[in-house]
Design a protein around this nucleic acid. Sequence first.
DNA 1: AACATTACCAACCGCCAGTTG
DNA 2: CCAACTGGCGGTTGGTAATGT
Length: 307
Amino acid sequence: MGRQPCCDKVGVKKGPWTPEEDLILVSYIQQHGPRNWRAVPTKTGLLRCSKSCRLRWANYLRPGIRRGNFTENEEKMIIHLQALLGNRWAAIASYLPERTDNDIKNYWNTHLKKKLKKLQGNESSSRYGFPSSSSSYQICRGQWERKLQTDIHMAKKDLSDALSPEKSSDLVEMKPFNDHTSYPKPSGYASSTENIAKLLKGWMRNNPWKMADSADYSEEGTVPMKEDKNSKEMAEAFQSHLGFESLDSSLSDISPSMSPEASLSQYESKPHLNAQSQLSLLEKWLFDEGKDYQLCDITLDQNLHFF
DNA sequence: AACATTACCAACCGCCAGTTG
DNA sequence: CCAACTGGCGGTTGGTAATGT
């Protein structure tokens, strides 16, 4: 039994929306809110399928959307987030509240992809390590993953030693990275994005340009660093094995754009890897303790050299 | 001016995951 | 537990504007 289409194909209007249709849709949503899209076509009399209505709202009519003319800062954000998250446009869009995922996707496909290709042609890819389909990149990625796994395993051991017993038990109970149900809200991704948000904040803090266009980013101020004993011990323990220097060199030699977050995210699609809990442990430590800025700034700054 | 090519972007399509009955 | 439904996502397409010949 095949799945029913979201709407009858017969009698459904397609193609560009008219201002009248927009008006009908907006006024309906103003009254009822952007939900129950299934009911929208019938309630409004629009000859559009529910999906089309939702998309029109999300990509065009929704308040707070800015269109056209991506700023240089937005470009940088997109490029960097794409390196971190891949083609997860909705995730990327969550960091650019005024832009839709569709807009970002289009901009990437039409502008940024070419731009990067051009830059990659001029500069050696090994220096910048942009994700690409090249075999060299695949090799670098493999090397980076293996190194990360080893380093994480060692870091975990030291972290366990450094942690207090109760904290230690908390960490043991942490669920695998791909266990979405174990993360607070609403999925595994959410946890990642929160962390990337911190990561980006740290990155932006040390960059000369400002996120003037977005209140979310302009609120950026000083980020308090926890200096409690445990975190200090953890930092030392972590540094002694993983070591920023070692990590830094691996990043620059192998693949600078493969930040820890990016590498971690790769494991989401590899449930067979036993390193998942280790990764989540590492991630938690890296991003939750507010000690990541130094590390992140290094890798992120490297990524921006090409500009 | 006419045609061809390229660039852009709004919208569509199909798949997937979460929800519901 | 399971099938159907729904909303969300990313890839792709098609129409139009801009540019080149």
